[in-house]
């Protein structure tokens, strides 16, 4: 059957190149995040935030972000020089991330072209596409908000997943099996991918939020590197917003999946193991959204729910796909 093996080979090459660039990007991001640990800066932060606290807004959030962007403060030389170099690692990291993303998207496209269909017909392709979407979502969020501190974990997570994709999940390029040969694959799966990406980014933010709140209250030495990050309240808010969008897309995934299930298996809901876990994930994130509005649930506790949520998403993708009996046995693995 007409599979273009040359293109498929090109795809593999592009993915490996992308992985190399992701690795370098991750190192630069990591240097930026963990490297510059001047304590003076955090002192300066205290000083300036006192100054800026009288801005007309009563909003704490604006006050803290203003600290980061305010030019021309007459602080000590060290701070100045650090500010000059500030985020150089992150800037390089982002440039590399864009480059890696282009290679990566190239890899996904060549894979899709090689088999003349959507590039998510098995676990490997799902991971290839999902990681590309994650990076794109991250870059889109970057245009709105400086979340470069997430870079280490975006590039690191993507790198790890791609590594698994080309080894454990590796599946040769081929046509679709009849069970997947439906236009619903072009609706149900990409939205599932988008949800996964959004929920993953939200979860990294939740981790940072928890660490940052420890940093804010106890200020242990090993968390000093967090001083440049937004407040835990801010991190919580971004994490929540992204998760809320992820929840909607997950709801859509579930509904579209149910419609497809009716077409393929004669019932829209049959408690297949994949359906069960999609439902479990949905309920956990529903609980997360509710917890946020419930008294007695502090932000850290809520963030833990978010993490349980992403854990169940990952479980749903890996363990359920590979080890559970069910109708969703499309991993492409034997």
């Amino acid at each position: 059957m007409d599979v273009n093996t040359d293109l498929a080979m090109w795809s593999n090459q592009l993915i490996i190149s992308a992985m190399i660039v992701y690795a370098v990007a991750m190192i630069f991001y990591a240097f930026d995040l963990f490297g510059a640990r001047e304590l003076k800066t955090s002192e300066a932060e205290v000083a300036t935030s006192a100054k800026t606290s009288t801005v007309r807004r009563t909003n704490r959030k604006t006050a803290t972000t203003a600290v980061l962007n305010r030019p021309g403060d007459d602080d000590s030389a060290t701070v100045k020089s650090s500010r000059k170099n500030k985020h150089r690692g992150a800037r390089i990291g982002t440039s590399l991330l864009v480059l890696a993303m282009l290679l990566h998207v190239g890899g996904v496209l060549t894979r899709a072209l090689s088999v003349a269909r959507v590039p998510w017909g098995n676990m490997m392709e799902y991971v290839l596409t999902a990681t590309a979407i994650t990076v794109i979502v991250f870059l889109v969020v970057l245009t709105k908000k400086d979340v470069r501190y997430l870079g280490t974990f975006v590039s690191g997570g993507v790198l790890l997943c791609l590594g698994l994709a080309i080894t454990v999940f590796y599946t040769p390029a081929a046509k679709l099996i009849p069970a997947l040969d439906s236009y619903w694959i072009a609706i149900h799966v990409p939205i599932a991918i988008l949800s996964t990406s959004l929920l993953y980014i939200s979860a990294i933010l939740a981790v940072f939020q928890i660490l940052k709140s420890v940093h804010e209250t106890k200020d242990p030495k090993w968390l000093r590197f967090l001083h440049r990050l937004p407040s835990s309240t801010d991190l919580e808010r971004i994490s929540y917003r992204i998760a809320a969008v992820g929840f909607i897309t997950w709801t859509f995934t579930l509904i579209a999946g149910a419609i497809w299930a009716e077409v393929a298996w004669s019932r829209y809901w049959g408690w297949d193991s994949k359906e069960i876990w999609t439902f479990v994930v949905w309920v956990i994130y529903a609980a997360y959204l509710h917890a946020r509005a419930t008294r007695g649930w502090g932000p850290t506790k809520v963030a833990v729910l978010n993490l349980i949520g992403i854990a169940s998403v990952i479980f749903n993708f890996t363990v359920v796909n590979m080890y559970f009996n069910g109708l969703h046995s499309y991993s492409g693995l034997d």
Binding site: V3, T5, T171, P172, A173, A174, K175, L176, I177, P178
Partner: peptide, 16 residues
Amino acid sequence: FDDQAAGNQFGQPRTF
């Protein structure tokens, strides 16, 4: 069934 593809994709169903 697929008699072209490599590896574990060989022999997979293509049309029913």
